[in-house]
Computed example of a mutant assay.
Amino acid sequence: MSDIRDPELPGRLLRTERDALLPLLRALPPECFELRTACPGWTVRQVLAHCGAALVRIVDGRLEEGVFLPEANAADVAQREHWPLSRILDELERGFTEAGPVIAAGDGELDTVALGEWVHAGDVREACGRPGAYAGDGTTYALPLLARASRRRDTPLLHATLTGRPEPLILGNAADGRPAARFHGDAATLIRIYAGRPLVATRYRLSGATEQELLIYR
């Protein structure tokens, strides 16, 4: 099973999501930014503040130890509490635009951050009742990043048969004496499972592993 890194994938994912998400955000009514998301305790505005802060930290090289731990994330969000919404969106757009080359130049440790940004865009869409949560044009880039992240996070080997995709996606790592788990469903639901997002109203089959074993964000 190949784990060759494509360093350009995170940037492609971020730029694709920038072009899809920013026009949507700039057209939302103000009350949407106060809606609660799947991220415990965080509103849409706070998720976006976290996303912009994380990406601009990468762009600016401010990656001190513990920078992406929950306490540091909360501090970044609190720092932006009184920013005008336009400033939060401008920072987010800058991060989506400029972080890709920095991530590409690294060793792959930050690839999962780009995937997480895309998942958070899904959190925002879902909270605001907009279509395309955990789906859309970025899926082409998100799935190989997910597969690589699943191996780096040492999740069980899983063969995913995805709706509308002819070839199965192979995720995770083989373990002696344990057969590969199997998933049948759509790509958005697979993303939800690995990212720990709500599965209400989804339809899928999973055998040989539990949803908890497949989490890449803990």
Rank of each mutant, 00 (worst) to 15 (best):
N73I: 05
G132D: 05
L25V: 05
R148E: 04
G132I: 09
L206Q: 14
P198R: 12
R165F: 11
R36A: 14
P30H: 10
G116Q: 08
R80D: 04
Q79Y: 10
P144F: 14
T161E: 15
R148Y: 01
G66R: 04
D123V: 05
S86M: 15
T112N: 04
I88G: 00
R182H: 12
A142L: 14
C39M: 11
G122Q: 02
T139P: 07
R80V: 06
R151F: 02
H82Q: 12
V56F: 04
V200C: 08
T155E: 13
L190I: 12
D90L: 01
H184Y: 15
D154P: 00
R80N: 03
P70A: 10
I88K: 08
G177Y: 10
L35A: 07
T16V: 06
A201H: 14
L169H: 12
S86H: 14
D111W: 05
L28I: 02
E213V: 09
L214Y: 05
T155M: 10
Q212L: 13
I88Q: 08
A195W: 02
D90V: 00
I103R: 06
I58H: 00
V67W: 15
I216P: 00
L89K: 10
G116A: 10
R203P: 12
T139A: 13
G208L: 14
P7I: 00
R57Q: 01
L55A: 11
L190K: 04
A181W: 03
R153E: 13
G95H: 04
L48D: 01
G108Q: 09
R218N: 15
A53R: 03
G208S: 15
L145A: 01
V59Q: 07
R15H: 01
G129V: 15
R18N: 03
A105Q: 11
E8M: 05
Y141Q: 12
V59F: 02
A121E: 06
T210L: 07
P168A: 09
R26M: 02
G129P: 11
R130T: 01
G61M: 06
E65I: 06
P30A: 14
A187P: 05
A121Q: 05
R57E: 01
G95E: 00
S207M: 10
L157R: 10
I191T: 07
A54T: 13
D111E: 15
G52W: 03
D111H: 02
P70C: 03
L157P: 07
A72V: 00
C32G: 08
W42V: 03
G100T: 03
E98L: 15
P198L: 08
I58D: 02
A181Y: 07
V200N: 08
I88F: 10
V124K: 04
L69D: 14
A54N: 14
G172I: 04
R36V: 12
A99R: 04
Q79V: 13
E31V: 13
A180P: 09
P40Q: 01
V119L: 14
E81K: 10
P23A: 06
A114G: 07
E31H: 09
C32K: 09
R62H: 14
L35H: 11
